[in-house]
């Protein structure tokens, strides 16, 4: 999926711990247009639960949440 998806913004969340990965996604979602996608890379395993929970609460969509080596890669779509 990541090969075909257009990325509007790359976010480096490596080294950040709770609650910062979620906070940074929230602070940056407004920078992409509605329908746009953020690709975020985190190292905090807690982000695997938190970023989808954030998306569910804010009405946005996580297209992908995958572990790649020691990193967690998210594709977050701005829905509104």
């Amino acid at each position: 999926m990541s090969d075909e998806t257009n990325i509007d913004l790359e976010l480096d969340l490596k080294g950040l711990l709770c609650p910062l990965p979620m906070v940074k996604v929230s602070q940056n979602i407004g920078k992409v247009p509605v329908g746009g996608v953020i690709r975020a890379v985190a190292t905090d395993p807690g982000a695997m639960a938190d970023i989808p929970a954030w998306a569910k609460s804010t009405g946005n969509e996580v297209l992908q949440a995958e572990k790649e080596g020691g990193e967690f890669v998210f594709l977050v779509k701005r829905v509104k």
């Binding site: 709770c18 609650p19 979620m22 906070v23 996604v25 929230s26 602070q27 938190d50 929970a53 954030w54 609460s57 804010t58």
Partner: peptide, 12 residues
């Protein structure tokens, strides 16, 4: 403060 910042980020 972790709960407060998290909640604010979640749009609360």
């Amino acid at each position: 403060f972790i709960i407060a910042t998290g909640a604010a980020a979640m749009g609360m």
